[in-house]
Amino acid sequence: MKVGFIGTGSMGSLLLEALIDSGSLAPNQVYASNRTPEKVIRLQQRHPGLHVCTSNAETAHNSDLIFLCVKPLQFKAILDEIGSTLRPDQMVISITSPVQIHHLESALCCKVAKIIPSVAHRVQSGVCLCMYGSRIKEEDRQLFEHLLSPISKPILIDESFVRITSDLSSCGPAFLSFFLDQWINAAVETTGMDRGELTWIAGEMLLGTGKLLTQGGFTPLELQKRVTVPGGITAEALALLDSSLTGVFHRLIATTHGKYKEDLEKCDAQFGGPGAD
C-alpha cells in the first residue's frame, strides 16, 4: 500500500512520522508534498526512502490512500488541483473537522473518509476519530483502521458529534497541559521546588489517571470519591475548584463550537453548500 501526505505541517508530519516509527508504514511506502518543499526534504532525511513529490497531483497519483493535512480553507484549491488525477479505487482522508464528508464526495470521484487525529499518536496512544463516506466498503474500513491501530485506538463516530469529541480527543491534551502548567507555575512560585521534577510527577500522575479511567474501571466521579476523605485536604481543594470553575466548561464548549460553526460556514461557501450565498 502506498500512502500520500499532502501537507506536512505540525499534524501532517506528526501523523506521517508516527506511522513510520510504529512500523505501520515503511518510508518507501510514503509519498509527500508541501508548499514548502524543504519540510518534506527534512522528513526524507530522517526517513530515507520517503518519496518527495514536486506537486500535490504527483502525490495523489502515486498513492492508494491520500491524507489531506491542510487548513480548512485550503481544501477547495487542493481538491481542484488533484481531482482529475484521482481514481475511484483510491481513498482521500481529511484530518480537519469543518470540512464535511459531503464536501469531499461532491468534489471527488474516489472514496472519502475523515479522521481527527491526536498529538498523542506520537507516542502510539490516544483515540483517532473516524468517519466514512458512502463509497467506503467494510473491507476499506478494516484496511484503513489496521493502518491506524499501531498508533491509536480508531473509533467510529457520527460526523454530527465531531466537534464535541474533538474537544476531548484532539484539543484535550492542550487543555490539560494548560491546567497543569498553571498548577506547576503556582507550585514553583509558592515553594521553590524544581519545575522539571514537578512536571515529571504531574505527567506520571496524568498517565496513571488515564489508566485508571480506561483500564481500572473507574468513572471520573468514582475516582474523585476514591481519593477524597470527607473533611480532608482533597475535599477542601475540590470544593474550591467546584466554586471557581462553575460554568467554565460550558463556556469552553460554546467557544469551540462557535469557531467550528464559523469555519463550517466558510467551507460551505467555498463548496457551494448550505452556507453559500
Rank of each mutant, 00 (worst) to 15 (best):
G83T: 12
G83F: 08
G83Q: 14
S84M: 09
T85Y: 12
T85R: 08
L86Y: 08
L86N: 06
R87C: 06
R87Q: 14
R87E: 13
R87Y: 02
P88W: 11
P88N: 14
P88V: 13
D89P: 00
Q90H: 05
Q90D: 05
Q90C: 00
V92D: 08
I93V: 15
I93S: 04
I93F: 06
I93E: 02
S94R: 05
S94D: 08
I95N: 08
I95C: 08
T96G: 09
S97A: 15
S97N: 12
S97K: 03
P98Y: 05
V99M: 03
V99Q: 01
Q100W: 04
Q100P: 00
Q100Y: 03
H102L: 02
H102W: 08
H103L: 03
H103D: 08
L104G: 01
L104W: 01
L104R: 00
S106E: 08
S106T: 10
S106C: 04
A107Q: 10
A107W: 02
L108T: 07
L108C: 05
L108K: 07
C109F: 09
C110M: 03
C110Q: 05
K111M: 06
K111V: 05
V112R: 05
A113E: 09
A113S: 14
A113F: 08
K114P: 03
K114I: 03
I115C: 00
I115W: 02
I115P: 02
I115R: 02
I115H: 03
I116E: 08
I116Q: 10
I116F: 11
P117L: 11
P117G: 10
S118G: 04
V119E: 11
V119W: 01
V119R: 07
V119M: 12
A120P: 02
A120G: 04
H121D: 11
H121C: 15
R122L: 11
R122C: 10
R122M: 11
V123P: 03
Q124N: 14
G126I: 03
V127L: 14
V127F: 11
V127M: 12
V127I: 15
C128K: 02
L129S: 13
L129W: 06
C130L: 07
C130K: 06
M131Q: 12
M131S: 14
G133Y: 07
S134E: 15
R135M: 13
I136W: 02
K137S: 11
K137C: 12
E138F: 03
E138S: 14
E139S: 14
D140R: 00
D140T: 00
D140W: 00
R141H: 01
Q142P: 01
Q142R: 14
F144P: 00
F144C: 05
E145S: 02
E145G: 02
H146P: 00
H146F: 09
H146R: 15
H146V: 06
L147T: 07
L147S: 04
L148I: 07
S149F: 10
S149P: 03
P150Y: 01
I151D: 04
I151S: 06
I151R: 00
S152N: 00
S152G: 01
S152R: 01
K153R: 13
P154V: 06
I155Q: 15
I155M: 15
L156E: 14
L156G: 05
I157N: 09
I157T: 01
I157F: 11
D158T: 10
D158F: 03
D158I: 07
E159P: 01
E159R: 03
E159D: 07
F161G: 10
F161N: 13
R163D: 14
R163G: 07
R163F: 01
I164G: 05
I164A: 12
I164Y: 10
